[in-house]
Amino acid sequence: MNIRITHSNFSIQHSAFSVRAWSGVSALAMLVALAGCGAETKVTRVDSGVVTDLSGRWNDTDSRQTAEAMVKEALGTPWLDNYTRSHRGKQPVVVVGMITNKSHEHINVQTFVTDLQRELVNSQKVTFVAGRGEREEIRQEREEQALHAREDTQKAPGKEIGADYMMKGYISTILDEADGVKAVFYQVDLELVDLESNVKAWFGQKKIKKVVERKRTVF
């Protein structure tokens, strides 16, 4: 019996509420329906040099700009003049070694290595030789030439140029995050090591800091 009385009260309250309830429910339904509209896909062709920071992660711009800046810095420091002077004008021979990814991202290190190699070759200030992986492939090709190519076109073994310096380094990150704001600090450390003496001829560092903000709520 008590249950019926409670229910009766409940109904009376809602008879006055019915019109507002109708409009309220309709408005909510419309809002929900409108919010479900999808976004169209748009593709814009841009120059490869244009900076496109979308997610805040390491991207092609970071790789290219870091390689350019660090090689420029490396070739602008005294070790290069010192070497050229002490070797009667001969350019130093450089090989790119291991660039270790110690970051929080799966960075394609090979892209960065390629950017470094391009900058080194195009500088015309150093002689650049192939790294370990490429050398294996080239040696295999020479071995095959020795077996299959015409004698006057065969390339002889033992004529490779040994590198004077190896460029190696690390990409590392420091992350900080709170309330949807993430600060990403990239640090690229490169060094040139004298392959004969293990002396570090140059040490360069490039830092990039990005702040990524995300909204907690949108309509």
Binding site: L31, V32, A35, R216, T217, F219
Partner: peptide
């Protein structure tokens, strides 16, 4: 999904 849609939560 860190960014929450109010409309989805209402729904």
């Amino acid at each position: 999904l860190y960014t929450r849609r109010i409309s989805t939560h209402v729904k």
